[in-house]
Amino acid sequence: MSDLRELYQEVILDHNRSPRNFRSLETANRVSEGHNPLCGDEVKVFVELDGNVITDIAFQGHGCAISKASASMMTSGVKGKTTGEAEALFEEVHRMVAGDGDTQPNADLLGRLTALAGVREFPNRVKCATLAWHTMNGALKGQKEVVFNE
């Protein structure tokens, strides 16, 4: 059961119970909807972009604890960052949860997002952890819809 405790860490459960920035954002100038047709999870990501800086970000939708917590932590993690920094962070998160790449995840860069590391042991949950991130990426690229089926 240790893998289970590793997956459902207190930080994850907390973000699932009380997701941060879980609302719509009227000032958003980039909005994208992400959808995983396999499991039916849906997330809408709102980004307020000033130049290349994410000045505000929020999300709505429904999904499992992993997807909700990941979305919540994502919004906390990228607020105030440049689009380049946000994309780099997504790459690092993806490397961590999908277990790709040989090197250890960059804990300094990831900060509290390292709580998602337990996902690595659950390959069929990687898509849950990355749906919101793919959707944010889509929003930054001006895509209105991201159909995601990793």
Binding site: M1, L4, G40, H62, C64, A65, I66
Partner: peptide, 22 residues
């Protein structure tokens, strides 16, 4: 308060195979 996928993952750790989703 628990999404079906989280139920499915925890049950799987007990060796219990169920379906979760739509």
């Amino acid at each position: 308060g628990v999404h079906a996928h989280d139920v499915g993952t925890i049950l799987d750790q007990h060796g219990v195979a169920i379906r979760a989703g739509h």
